[in-house]
């Protein structure tokens, strides 16, 4: 069965390692924080200027001056710090942040990503995504494999205006985990109960498939 958004987040949380500084994008990536192992040390950075983000505040304790990049009210954990936007992107550009997890409208087999604009229809802006994808060493994309019309979003070449080129390292969708290699997408894992054939059918790009593809462990 295809994964739901929380299960995608749960699978991506396995990529978060001990002593990582992590930046989470809006949407599914935000949910990843809920599933990170409790026995490792991880700090969450939000590009609007906070390191050491905690969970949402208790009702009645919201502070308009303490938000994340999704404009949601948040809390901070002991050891947290605040800084201005230029400093924040300085730490991103200088690769102090180990892992960036963000959403996408399309990804292509050479690691290009598009997630900020549909010409003539939707222009919300790139926010911090272009800076993050251009600088981060490790970028994982959380996205749906196909759009509402059933068309693949895992492509040979992106059709939408790009956010970044050759930057995506791994993609986790409701159907599969794929790694971006110099030769294209390599299928690493499949969602429980989803066959390799179903994944191939939902993928416009060529998939590199070597041996048996294991099921994801999302328990």
């Amino acid at each position: 069965m295809a994964l739901d958004k929380n299960q995608i987040a749960k699978r991506i949380a396995q990529e978060v390692k001990d002593r990582y500084f992590v930046n989470l994008g809006i949407g599914i990536p935000t949910l990843v924080a809920n599933y990170v192992r409790h026995d490792i040390e991880v700090e969450f950075q939000s590009e609007n200027g906070v390191l050491g983000m905690g969970p949402f505040p208790f009702e009645g304790e919201e502070d308009a001056d303490i938000i994340n990049a999704g404009k949601q009210t948040i809390t901070t954990l002991p050891g947290a710090s605040f800084f201005d936007s230029a400093f924040s992107f300085g730490m991103i550009r200088a690769q102090k942040v180990d892992l960036t997890i963000l959403g996408a409208m399309e990804v292509s087999e050479n690691g290009d990503i598009a997630n900020w604009k549909i010409p003539g229809k939707m222009v919300k802006g790139m926010g911090g995504a272009m800076d993050l994808v251009a600088s981060a060493e490790n970028i994982i994309v959380a996205m749906m494999h196909v759009n509402k019309a059933g068309e693949s979003k895992i492509l040979k070449k992106c059709t939408l205006p790009l956010t970044g080129v050759g930057c995506v390292k791994k993609v986790v969708t409701e159907l599969a985990v794929m790694e971006v290699t110099p030769k294209g997408f390599k299928l690493l894992e499949r969602a429980p109960g989803v066959s390799v054939e179903e994944i191939i059918k939902a993928t416009e790009a060529e998939l590199i498939i070597e041996g048996d593809i294991p099921e994801m462990n999302i328990d």
Binding site: S46, N48, G49, V50, D63, A64, D65, I66, I67, N68, F82, F83, D84, S85, A86, F87
Partner: peptide
């Protein structure tokens, strides 16, 4: 002096 994430672009 700024407070929390209200520093953002005000600082730069």
């Amino acid at each position: 002096i700024f407070k929390g994430t209200a520093r953002n672009f005000n600082g730069c």
